[in-house]
């Protein structure tokens, strides 16, 4: 039970914490994007899991169960006195799926960062957000030396519906990242009325 010297502190104004997910394949620029717009140096925590959480089928014999950790990077943007926005980069490897569920829970929306040199690495993210009904935009991160594709080409390759915005971006540029996030939130607001898409 609470001891006698407990004291309840007077509370200052407490903002609502909301989040946007930054997803994409390993090395697509998620951490770079978070760092570009975050008001703090991105913080890193981690999650511990057992192999049983991996979603692989080789879990015969729990005596061999081992644990590992996954880094989870996040940044913060203070919107105003009432709202603080957190940006979470998803773990890069596909096998850390189970974390996505919690990350996606209650998220305002998601940015799928696509690397056109390895477009297939973001298929999972696109599929995940489509299935969960989490609104998302695709940001095509421009890497030095990568072929420049047109929006239609990327859309076709990713097979995303016409209402999903596809934006060319540079994760290193704060202005560009800001545009991506603005586009996402605009997209979310636009889509708040249930829209059935074919």
């Amino acid at each position: 039970m609470a001891s006698a010297d407990s004291e309840t502190r007077p509370q200052e104004a407490i903002p609502q914490a909301v989040k946007i997910i930054i997803a994409g394949g390993f090395g697509a620029g998620k951490t770079t994007l978070v760092a570009s717009v975050s008001e703090i140096t991105p913080l890193s925590t981690e999650e511990v899991m057992t192999e049983a959480s991996y979603g692989v089928d080789d879990i015969g014999g729990v005596e061999h169960k081992t644990t590992t950790t996954v880094a989870l990077d996040f940044g913060r943007i203070t919107i105003n006195d009432d709202v603080v926005l957190y940006l979470f980069g998803t773990p890069g490897q596909d096998r850390f799926w189970f974390m996505w569920d919690e990350l996606a829970e209650g998220a305002l929306g998601a940015v799928v960062l696509a690397d056109t040199r390895r477009l297939d690495t973001c298929f999972h993210a696109v599929d995940f957000f489509e299935r969960r009904g989490v609104p998302f935009v695709v940001a095509v991160n421009r890497f030095e030396g990568s072929t420049v594709y047109r929006e239609e080409e990327v859309r076709q390759a990713l097979d995303v519906s016409a209402d999903v915005p596809i934006i060319l971006a540079d994760a290193r540029e704060r202005g560009s990242c800001k545009e991506v996030l603005v586009e996402l939130v605009t997209h979310v607001i636009r889509g708040r009325d249930p829209v059935m898409s074919g």
């Binding site: 609502q16 919107i79 709202v83 926005l85 605009t186 979310v188």
Partner: peptide
């Protein structure tokens, strides 16, 4: 919240 975030991001 969404509108506040939009304004804040802009």
């Amino acid at each position: 919240i969404l509108h506040a975030v939009l304004v804040g991001l802009r």
